[in-house]
Design a protein around this nucleic acid. Structure first.
Lengths: 136, 136
DNA sequence: GTTAAAATCTATAAAAACGATAGGGTAAAG
DNA sequence: CTTTACCCTATCGTTTTTATAGATTTTAAC
């Protein structure tokens, strides 16, 4: 299940990309337009800023704005920051690999075998989608 | 993230399929062989039985056994029973559809657009894998 | 410059939901 | 009368989501 954090984060990014101008947009405006709890959104935007997706400007006339072109923002990166691992099991994760406690041999594990394919499928989708693709 | 319920369920099914014979296998044996909490496995096997994957026999010499051939047990069905929806968002789910409270128009929603593709990818993998494929 | 307002930042924590496990008792089969 | 599956309930721990309260920075107005 996709967390609301990811969902809201994606929606916020989409909104900023659709605005098109690089002018800062206030949290309140984004929250209202996308029906998101403002305080929750606040923390989400913060992590997006810390990870290089957004810039921010404080004070009057401040807000958040995209720091890169929508075409450059690839979903693999967004998902990993907001949702975490793309793989459904740590033992098939590229960026968050972890061995299973049970499972003496990964290569013979049925779960491993199946989830490897699922991961590859998801990865291909995320790699082929930028923020620009989602607003088209 | 894949729940342990699903993981354990898959491992149990795999084990039963690898045994090959249709003789009942005790919960304790499966739990021990796959490093699973026996009590937890108990409830998992129960739901697998209720959903037509397993048969059971009580008393001495009892246990669980596969009710269908491994080739007939397709992953879409198993995942839906153990894990629930394959889609990461209810608004793109085939079997568990639900409209989002926010989101006035699904067709314009970026999350919807992205998760539709992810679902299709996962679906293709699950459709192409039977229990027999996983033990090969 | 000073000030005040507007906004982002920070930290905490409460509330709710969910996942995983354990305990104890019942029913059926041999 | 023993063995095993079946069933119900409670609990513990974690994660997710939201709420609260205040600190800090920047800008704009005066």
């Amino acid at each position: 299940m996709l967390s609301k954090k990811t969902k809201y984060g994606l929606k916020a990014l989409t909104y900023l990309a659709s605005i098109d101008s690089k002018e800062p947009v206030q949290i309140a405006e984004i929250a209202k337009h996308e029906n998101i709890s403002q305080k929750f959104l606040e923390s989400i935007l913060l992590t997006l800023r810390r990870n290089g997706f957004l810039g921010s400007k404080k004070g009057k006339g401040g807000g958040y704005y995209l720091i890169k072109e929508p075409e450059e923002i690839v979903m693999t990166a967004v998902i990993r920051v907001l949702e975490g691992p793309i793989a459904m099991v740590p033992c098939v994760s590229l960026n968050f690999y972890e061995k299973c406690d049970d499972c003496p041999d990964e290569n013979k594990c049925s779960v491993h075998k199946l989830m490897l394919q699922v991961r590859d499928g998801a990865l291909e989708v995320y790699r082929n989608n930028t923020l620009a693709d989602l607003i088209a």
